[in-house]
């Protein structure tokens, strides 16, 4: 096996481990530790999906930065979300929901500059987020995710997250989960 190939495999394993660790933090409600994984210049977006004609596919998804999205924010707003949950008076999360984040189909899309000393990695995956709330209230969110991770002295950090939820009308009453 070439050194290049080995470096790629090890990098992939490291990235998957990071993503699974992140999912653990969220599912265990260790939100402050999760915030520490986010870069200050984080871009976090979940645009909406429209039903359009086959030859207008470029209009299928709303545009972060310009148009209405489910989420289009940065670290400071995500920190507000965490702070809101921690007040204990955010009724939509009090009592807290039970959430599991599944991350699969992880593939490294690009590495800058190389897998030996990577500074930034673009990763594609699928997400399946399951939520159960109070008694019989259950939601399932599934879609594609593109993350950009940046290497720092403290490990990988999230620089960008773009989520493509596979829903048009949102089939949940709210989006209090952190994706």
């Amino acid at each position: 096996m070439s050194e290049q190939r080995l470096a790629e495999l090890l990098l992939k394993e490291e990235i998957v481990e990071f993503l699974h660790h992140e999912a653990d933090l969220l599912d265990e409600r260790r939100f402050d530790e999760w915030l520490d994984l986010l870069e200050d210049d984080l871009e976090y977006a979940m645009p909406m999906r429209l039903n359009v004609r086959h030859d207008e596919a470029n209009r299928e998804t709303t545009r972060p930065g310009d148009e209405v999205c489910w989420f289009d924010e940065g670290k400071s707003t995500l920190a507000k979300r965490v702070e809101q949950i921690q007040t204990g008076q955010h009724w939509a999360e009090e009592p807290a929901s039970r959430v599991s984040h599944l991350v699969s189909n992880v593939r490294i899309r690009s590495v800058d500059p190389d897998p030996f000393e990577p500074a930034e990695v673009e990763v594609g995956c699928r997400f399946l987020v399951y939520r159960n709330r109070v008694a019989a209230e259950t939601d399932l969110w599934v879609g594609r995710r593109t993350d950009v991770l940046r290497a720092t002295p403290d490990g990988w950090r999230l620089r960008r997250r773009h989520l493509l939820l596979d829903q048009n009308v949102l089939l949940a009453k709210n989006l209090t989960v952190l994706f």
Partner: peptide, 23 residues
Amino acid sequence: RHWYLRYSGPAGLVEQDDMENWD
């Protein structure tokens, strides 16, 4: 636009608690 999106809608920090109550 950023203010609207963090205020209202299903991801809005304000609107979410209304919907919990109505539910």
